[in-house]
Write a protein that binds this DNA or RNA. Structure first.
Lengths: 197, 197
DNA sequence: CATTATAGCGATCCGAAGGTCGCTTTGTCA
DNA sequence: TGACAAAGCGACCTTCGGATCGCTATAATG
């Protein structure tokens, strides 16, 4: 129950930091919205700064757990349709999971103020996805589902447009459905251009 | 000289807001770094809020002036090499011009807090570039320099990867040179894939 | 059941930040 | 040159936000 409070503070901090930034959020707001008085925070964290650091630790750990090791790489699709299905599944998760959305917004907002946020942003927004799809496309080229080419370059060309549209969903959530359609259209375009058929 | 002060305040505000955000920047810092006492600001603006609004007005106007009307569309290249040269020129400008860099960072940081920043961010980061290159690629397809395809989709596939790397330059300026190389490599890859040869 | 640590509360402190006001300086113009 | 407006200065006000401390209630433990 007490342990729970600490977690709830972190969750609420992620929520508020991702909307208004670290500087734009105050302790009172966090604690009152959880039904506490602001000073109750100091039973769980030494300072506002420590909330930030703990939160970032969690986000880094979470990313590492989830995407850190090769065993978390997705299976190599057996067809282009399967690639599309896998992509749509991943995108749907990433734009609808509230925690993931808030994490992305947080990193977007704080990337120029905090070095760890900066590093994590580059992984989240660029390198992580590219590396993952480098593996996927490398496998698909071996299976002759895609034209042979530099898999890292092809992965980059595939993931960055999708990433741009995910950012658009974050910025303008009311356009999410339309944007998901655009993602699917882009995937089909990509498959037409790069597919080996 | 007085008029100048107002401009200098706006310039400094852009600089600081783009590094630390609106909430993370205080009036004293702006004014003292310009050699004034903080309250001198109130001879030029009613409030901190008004600095923000004026600054955003300027950024919106500047964007409109520069990219707003069709006459500002770039000429359609006569060859793939020319497309590459034009792209490199544009990227170099956008990555090295301090004001442009600061504007991008500002929009990145404040896009979730301010609706006008949000709208301008979508233009800056996505639609503006895509529209511009839709025109370019449409012309190039007419000249049979590129395979015929949906020019808007091809423009999207061209500009968003470049945009992702421009964001990387903003985030990690020490990697600028290496990142510019990656942009060029991507452009060449793109030309190989989409070029009509 | 008594003890003790934990967690929440509220009063309070302190410094920072936005903003006001009146005085002084400067620069413009008749 | 005298008068006035614009612009800068600095003292001051107020609020807000982070942080400390001591009291109390709860809940876990021997």
């Amino acid at each position: 129950m007490a342990k729970d409070t600490k977690e709830r503070i972190l969750t609420k901090a992620l929520e508020l930091f991702s909307q208004k930034g670290y500087d734009g959020t105050n302790i009172k707001e966090i604690m009152v919205s959880l039904g506490f008085v602001k000073t109750a925070m100091y039973r769980h964290f030494e300072s506002k700064e420590e909330i930030w650091n703990t939160l970032l630790d969690r986000l880094i750990d979470y990313y590492e757990e989830r995407f850190g090791s090769p065993e978390h790489l997705p299976p190599v699709p057996e067809s282009l349709e399967e690639l599309l299905a896998m992509t749509i599944r991943m995108v749907n998760f990433t734009v609808h999971d509230e925690t993931v959305v808030m994490t992305r917004k947080l990193l977007t907002i704080e990337q120029f103020r905090d070095d760890r946020a900066r590093a994590l942003a580059t992984k989240h927004f660029l390198n992580g996805l590219t590396e993952m799809f480098t593996h996927v496309f490398s496998g698909m080229m071996d299976k002759e589902l895609l034209c042979r080419d530099d898999p890292a370059m092809v992965a980059f060309a595939y993931t960055t447009p999708i990433s741009a549209l995910i950012h658009l969903c974050d910025r303008e959530p009311e356009k999410t459905n339309e944007t998901l359609d655009r993602i699917e259209a882009f995937c089909r375009h990509f498959m037409k251009v790069y597919g080996a058929s």
